[in-house]
Design a protein around this nucleic acid. Sequence first.
DNA 1: GTCTATAAGAGGATAGAC
DNA 2: GTCTATCCTCTTATAGAC
Lengths: 197, 197
Amino acid sequence: MINETNDKIRYTSFKFFLEKGYESTNIRDICKVVDIKPSSLYFYYKSKQELFFSIYEEIWNKKITVIKKINELNSNKSPDTRFELMYKQLIECHAKNILNEKFLLRYHMFPAEEIAMILKDRYKFWTYEEYKIFADIINECIEKGLLNSQRNTDDYFQHFKRFMLYQLTDMLIYNIKKDSKDQDEAWVNFWNYFISG
Amino acid sequence: MINETNDKIRYTSFKFFLEKGYESTNIRDICKVVDIKPSSLYFYYKSKQELFFSIYEEIWNKKITVIKKINELNSNKSPDTRFELMYKQLIECHAKNILNEKFLLRYHMFPAEEIAMILKDRYKFWTYEEYKIFADIINECIEKGLLNSQRNTDDYFQHFKRFMLYQLTDMLIYNIKKDSKDQDEAWVNFWNYFISG
DNA sequence: GTCTATAAGAGGATAGAC
DNA sequence: GTCTATCCTCTTATAGAC
């Protein structure tokens, strides 16, 4: 393990930032858990902010990588099937990495003031990366007449995001884990509403 | 105005706690806006925590008062109609006091560590007040065969709360204000799902 | 009720030795 | 890479005058 200490710092910081929030997380407490002195942490990260964003970026990066991977695996399917599989496989992935999703939700909904501006900027960047992937699928659905062309790609994407957020809060707040039969039903309901507008 | 200063303190603090969160809100900044010295604030509130909970409790108190009032106004109706009217009038009220709802959501989802334990306790107290009112309606629906008796009152209440949260996040995050036709449709969808389980 | 002045402590960050 | 020691700033809160 070349960077065992760094791994410990990242793992501990993630938990603290997730559970206590940015302001209530302090370097001293992280270092106590990692069992190093604060000055040692500053060897790896030049500031608390850099430490935070190093973790934030890694979470998004993993997430986008997974979305791209799912998209590629289903590339031979029709666009509406691809959309459905994307949803189901992504939900399953979120269920597995539920703490990552909670982390993102926390800082997107209620960003700490000190990091709010950078967060807004990075959020914009990453959601655009996400958008590009889904826009391809949605546009193909529109081209093939599977979705109404009266609404634009952006509207459809926003609509889908709201649906995902709803499923996510069910998992996060109410600890509701839906089985695949429930997910089938949820998707059918969503899609019917989706195509009718 | 006997307590003009106190009103200013409360109004300013509410905005700060809502927008910046508990930890990032500091007494000095509040006092600058109110145009008093910090020591004067401590004449009205013995601590930052007391100031916060004074505001938190007032919001809940107003909310429960409104729910009780709506319930009384519709007391002559059948329980399912009462339920529906309760939802629609409450949503309308939330739309008007959207910042109060955002305040509660913020501190219930991601409570600041320093106040987390008290918040949990007070949340329990107030949601029980809320529960008692809705439980009456739900129980009457069950008695009259308008709702399936295989699920218990608690389940129905939780289900309803999730539905409300979904409508609320639509307003809060996506700034979506539904008109009464949309609300009619949302309620019908909810109720059908509600009675079928 | 509001002020001036200040105590008391927490937390981010750095200098420099090893 | 990790340590000891310390600086500096910010923040809650209080003492006591007016």
